[in-house]
Structure formats: structure tokens, C-alpha cells
Amino acid sequence: MPHQQKIVYGKLVRDRIPEIITADGQIPRVRVLDEPDLLPALIAKLHEEAEEVATAEPNARLRELADVREVLAALTIASGFTEVQVEEAAASKRAERGGVHPTPLARRGTHPRRVKLGCPSLRRTSADGSR
């Protein structure tokens, strides 16, 4: 009898993973999470996917960002919100506090004239364009 490899995920997986495991001739053992277990599992998955974005090679980053988006969509629904509500909240926060593309690095509330940023394009520029 051939040795079968047992893979234990112990984490959220995409909903087609059991189907893929079955197509590979293996028997998936899964459980659908109850509501109290779902949010913590989604948050853990978001951390996992964010770490994968952080460590991805540039050519793999798009797929990792897609994974983050997928988890955020599930987390939005599980939290009782809609995508529209999240977009509206993001727009409101952007109007109030600004966006993050690109954003300067904040350093503990130091006076803007004393902030030294590593990237010359992010350094403070005066109204006349001088530094």
C-alpha cells in the first residue's frame, strides 16, 4: 500500500480547495466555521496574506494583493457590512485625514521642517518648489 501524505492546514482555505484535493485523489477533511470562529479565522487569514504581500517577489505581488482583497471581502460580509459601506467609510476617512498613495512617513509628530525622509521625492517641499 503506497504511503499517503497527510497535509494539515488548520486555517481558512479558499472554497475550491476541497474540490482540488478530491481531484488529486485525496480525501479532504474540512469543517465550516461557526459564526464565533469565523471572524478570528478571517483576521488570522488577513495577517497571513498581508505577510505574503510583504515577502512576495515583485512579480508575485499582484496575486498576493488579490488574496488580501478576497479575504477583506469575506471579512466585510462576516462583519455585517457591504462593500459600498466600506468604500463610503474609506472615502470619508480619506476626506478627513488624507489617503495613503503615496504618503510621507510620519515620525512621532516632529515638526515637518525637521523630518528627514530617506526618499528625496518624499522630502518636504515649500510652496515655491524649493526644499
Results as ranks from 00 to 15, higher is better:
E48V: 05
K6T: 14
M1V: 13
A89I: 10
I77Q: 15
I17L: 15
G118V: 01
D15M: 02
R124G: 14
A50S: 12
L39C: 02
A74W: 06
Q26K: 15
A60G: 07
A95R: 13
K11F: 00
A127P: 00
R124V: 13
K116A: 08
P28M: 00
I21F: 02
G98T: 03
P40C: 08
P36W: 00
K93S: 03
P18L: 01
L33R: 02
T125I: 14
A56Q: 01
V115N: 13
A23E: 15
L75D: 00
E87I: 11
P112V: 10
R131M: 10
Q5C: 04
G109S: 03
E51Y: 02
G25R: 04
E19S: 11
V115F: 05
G10F: 01
I7P: 03
P18K: 06
H111E: 14
K11D: 07
D24E: 13
L117E: 13
T55G: 09
E57S: 13
K45C: 10
Q85M: 13
A60K: 11
L38S: 05
L117F: 02
H3D: 13
I77R: 15
L33C: 04
E52Q: 13
G129Y: 11
R69A: 15
T82D: 08
T125D: 00
P120H: 01
D37S: 15
P104I: 14
G80P: 03
R107T: 11
V84F: 06
L65M: 12
D67A: 08
A78W: 05
R29N: 10
P18W: 00
R16T: 14
R107K: 14
A56E: 02
E64Q: 14
C119W: 06
E51N: 09
L12T: 02
T103W: 08
P40E: 09
L72A: 09
R107W: 09
G118M: 04
L39A: 05
D37Y: 00
P2Y: 03
Q26E: 09
P112Y: 11
K93C: 05
D37V: 04
R61G: 00
D34V: 06
T125E: 12
A50M: 11
G98S: 05
V86I: 15
K45Y: 04
I27S: 09
A95G: 14
P2V: 10
G10S: 03
R94M: 10
I43C: 06
A95N: 12
S126P: 00
R97C: 07
V68K: 06
T103Q: 12
P2Q: 05
R107M: 13
T76L: 05
K93I: 07
A50V: 14
Q5L: 12
P28H: 02
R107H: 13
P120E: 04
L75G: 01
R114W: 11
A23F: 05
P102F: 11
S126V: 04
E48D: 13
T55V: 06
T82R: 07
V32Y: 10
V68A: 02
T110A: 14
D34Y: 06
D24V: 00
L65Y: 08
E96F: 05
T22F: 01
E96C: 06
H47E: 15
A66E: 12
G25P: 04
V8C: 02
P40S: 08
H101L: 14
V84I: 10
I20Y: 01
R29W: 03
E48S: 04
